[in-house]
Structures are given as structure tokens and as C-alpha cells.
């Protein structure tokens, strides 16, 4: 049963990733990435990581991809990507080196298959409970640090994407921030 689900999902996963690469339209690329992330969530369930499967669907396929689609729509979807190669032969070289990388990594997995072939012991008890216990005891300090990281990221996003950024020299020809209300007679 496990193997059947895996063999259905693995081609879908890799196929969605390849199609994401081949899409000229960024929206379709984002949707293929969503499909890929759903298949990864299925893999997480197969690996008994139920908590992370839920997080994968909610955070990645939900929040992050909605953010991506928002920015794609914001920037305009009908922009065509330039087909010129700035470095001669870059595309072929990249694909060739990519195949080399894949061959190398798969070879490394093949060499280490003695480790991976042994069936892992079934984890006892609830996965969510086990993750929570480790997360809130051994890793409680890094967990608090991630909250600081997220706050910094949110503030940074607001500062970067603000419409009228102060202190940047070539905005001087535009109206300074806060001038607009004074124009009202």
C-alpha cells in the first residue's frame, strides 16, 4: 500500500517540478509548484511525519504560494521572459551540469543503500506529541529565536516594499513623503 502510493506520487512530484521549469507563464509555474508541494506532503505522511505534512500544506502550499501568486499578479502576469542567453551556451551547460549533479547524488545514495535499506523501527506513539515534546524541551531556545526571525522578516518586508522610501537619493525629484495633504486648498 505504501509502495503503491509512493509510485503514484513520485512521478507526479518530479513531473510537476519539470513542468514548473518549462512553463513560460509564472502563474502556471506557481501552480505546478503547489502540486509538487502537495505530493511532498503525501511523502511526509508516508514517512510518519504527520505534523509536518499539515505544516507543508498550510504554510507552503497555502501561505507561501498565495504570497507568490500575489506578487506575480502585482507585477503583471503577461510579461514574456527574455529568451536571449547572456552567457553563450549557459542553458545547455546548466542542464548538463544538473544531470551530472543528479547522477552524483543518486550514485552516492546507491553507495549508501546498505544504510537505507534497513527498515526503520516504527516510531511509537503519536507523531505530533513526539515532535511537540522535542520542540518545547530540547529546542525551545531555537524555537524562540525563530519568532524573532519572523518579526524581523515582517518588519523588513514592510520597510522594503514601502512606496515612499526615505533616505534614497534618486527619489528627490518625487514629492517628499507627507506632502500630499498640503496640496488640498
Amino acid at each position: 500500500m505504501d509502495l503503491i502510493v509512493f509510485w503514484i506520487m513520485a512521478p507526479v512530484s518530479v513531473g510537476a517540478a519539470v513542468l514548473m521549469l518549462l512553463q513560460r507563464n509564472a502563474v502556471y509555474a506557481a501552480l505546478f509548484l503547489v502540486l509538487n508541494q502537495f505530493t511532498l506532503a503525501v511523502f511526509f505522511v508516508l514517512l510518519d511525519a504527520h505534523f509536518l505534512a499539515a505544516v507543508q500544506v498550510i504554510v507552503y502550499a497555502g501561505a507561501i504560494m498565495v504570497l507568490f501568486l500575489f506578487v506575480i499578479m502585482f507585477l503583471g502576469v503577461d510579461r514574456r521572459e527574455a529568451l536571449v542567453e547572456p552567457i553563450r551556451g549557459q542553458r545547455g551547460l546548466a542542464i548538463g551540469l544538473g544531470l551530472l549533479l543528479a547522477a552524483g547524488v543518486v550514485l552516492a545514495i546507491g553507495l549508501g543503500i546498505g544504510l537505507a535499506r534497513a527498515p526503520g523501527p516504527a516510531p511509537g506513539g503519536d507523531n505530533i506529541e513526539a515532535v511537540a515534546r522535542v520542540l518545547f524541551t530540547d529546542y525551545v531556545f531555537p524555537f524562540e529565536l525563530t519568532s524573532i526571525l519572523l518579526i524581523i522578516a515582517a518588519v523588513a518586508a514592510m520597510v522594503l516594499a514601502r512606496r515612499k522610501a526615505r533616505g534614497l537619493p534618486d527619489l528627490a525629484d518625487e514629492a517628499p513623503a507627507g506632502r500630499e495633504p498640503e496640496r488640498v486648498p
Binding site: D48, A49, I64, L67, A118, Y139, A153
Partner: peptide, 28 residues
């Protein structure tokens, strides 16, 4: 899963958090 413990899952959880922060700043 292979090692039968959840430390790897916690690390994956942290990498998801970092990825979320990275996406927010990068898109900005």
C-alpha cells in the same frame, strides 16, 4: 524516519520557518 527519532523533523520545521522568512524578504 530511518533513525526512528523526531530531531530531523524539528530541523525540517525550522527550515520551513526560515524559508517563510526568506520568501517574505525576497519577494519584498
Amino acid at each position: 524516519r530511518q533513525l526512528g527519532e523526531v530531531n530531523g523533523q524539528v530541523l525540517a520545521f525550522f527550515s520551513m520557518v526560515v524559508a517563510a522568512a526568506e520568501v517574505v524578504v525576497g519577494l519584498a
